[in-house]
Amino acid sequence: MGIEEKLPSGFLLTTVEQFAGYARKGSLWPATFGLACCAIEMMAAGGARYDLARFGMEVFRASPRQADLMIVAGRVSQKMAPVLRQIYDQMPEPKWVIAMGVCASSGGMFNNYAIVQGVDHVVPVDIYLPGCPPRPEMLIDAILKLHAKISDTKLGKNREAEVRELEAAALTAPATHEMRGLLP
C-alpha cells in the first residue's frame, strides 16, 4: 500500500493507521448491488427515517469503480454470480463486502439448485448480516461494526503481522463440527 510499507513500524504508523481508518470509514460509498427483498430494506435504510447519510453513505455509487463497499443485498442466483464477481473485481482497493440477509450469507431458506449458498463462495465477505430481511437498524449495526473494523485496520508491516496471527489462530481453532455448544 505505498509509502506505509517503507516506514518502520512505530508510533508514526499507528497514527497514520488511525487517520487512514477514520478517513476510510467516514465516507464509505456503497455500490448499488440490491438484488431482492433486502434491497428494499437497504433503500429504506438510505431513506429518511433510518438515515445512512449521517454516516456519509447516502451516495450509492452506480459505478463500482467509484465505490468501496458492496452490500450484497438479496439472493444471488447462479446466473447472477459471475456478474457479482465482475462487479467486485471492478471495485478498486480498498474494498469491503457486507453480505446482507441470510440469502447472501448462506443461501438462506433457498437450499436449492438456483441459489449460490452464500456469496462467500464468490467474493470474500467482511460482515455477515442475518435476517430475512434484516431491519434497517440491523443493517446500520452491521455497517457500524464494519466501520469499527475499518478504523482498526492495521497498515503495512502491522497488517502483515496481524494477518500472520489470524492465520495461526485459524489453523489451531477447533473445527465447526467439534464445537458442541454448551455440551461438554
Binding site: 447462479q78 446466473k79 443461501g107 437450499n111 436449492n112 439448485y113 438456483a114 449458498q117 465447526t176 463440527h177 467439534e178 464445537m179 458442541r180 455448544g181
Partner: peptide, 26 residues
C-alpha cells in the same frame, strides 16, 4: 430463467432440488 447453457430442466420431478447438506455444530 436459467443460464443459457444449463443442463436439464429443473422443475421436472426427476430433477433433484439440488440443495446442500447444512452442518451445524456436529
Amino acid at each position: 430463467q436459467m443460464p443459457d447453457d444449463w443442463p436439464g430442466h429443473p422443475q421436472r420431478k426427476d430433477y433433484p432440488l439440488g440443495g446442500i447438506p447444512v452442518e451445524y455444530k456436529g
